[in-house]
Amino acid sequence: MRLSKLTATVIATAALGLIVGTASASEGPELKHVEFSFEGVFGTYDKAAAQRGFQVYQESCTNCHSMKLLSIRNLGEAGGPFYDEEHPNANENPVIKAIAAMFTVTDGPDSEGDMFERPAKPFDRFPSPFANEQAARASNGGALPPDFSVLVSAREHGPQYIYSLLTSYEDDAPEGVELRDGMNYNAAFKGGQIGMPPPLFEDLVEYSDGTKASVEQMAHDVVTFMAWASDPKMEERKRMGWMVMIYLFIFALLMYGSYKAVWRDVEH
């Protein structure tokens, strides 16, 4: 009699379930369930959506939200929304150069010892709207607009959460909720009261590809962009993951064959 395979399987499944389950234990308001192109083991970023999302980010979010850990060149690197096979070096990509030129960065000190402003280059980091956290809070009624670099990873069910947050503003708080001064009601935000005013409204941006800029569409697009920003190597990672899995599967079969061959003449 040995520790039965069933018992072992039950224990192992329970343990694994616990491991994965605890990491995704969720509380707080219910989220809207929307599907994104990048979900699942085959998922990739919808490039057109990420490009539109960048437009939303640039025209609407950059006034308050920084994205300090990303450089402008990242947009044009492999897996990025503006990657172009003809320009594998993002620094040479004319689209990236044009995007860079739209931003202004502070450089220096110059030979006089003064800081100066210049148009950004692809290798520059995305400039931050505020000099420091205190300045950001002072301009936003005490609330700190979070940095976008890894925001999707930093929230449970990040894509769903941010999509829900962007689309759950209501003009009037429900009965019994007393909005504090300067706060807005958002059903997806824990506690319902959020400092950020509704960032999206119908036709906020004009998409060059003709897509209708509804609030839901823009939210979906900007979440795709932010998901890419948080995890720019995801496509490369999954692609290599499949190759490694296939290799290991074949290797395991060969290994099993060798194992059987070695043990062929031995009772055990």
Partner: peptide
């Protein structure tokens, strides 16, 4: 205790070892 089994072509065993080693 080895039970006499029909002797297989030993090169088949060698093949699986070489294939496994090469894959590794």
């Amino acid at each position: 205790e080895t039970v006499s089994t029909p002797v297989e072509n030993p090169s088949r065993r060698d093949f699986i070892y070489i294939a496994t080693g090469a894959a590794g």
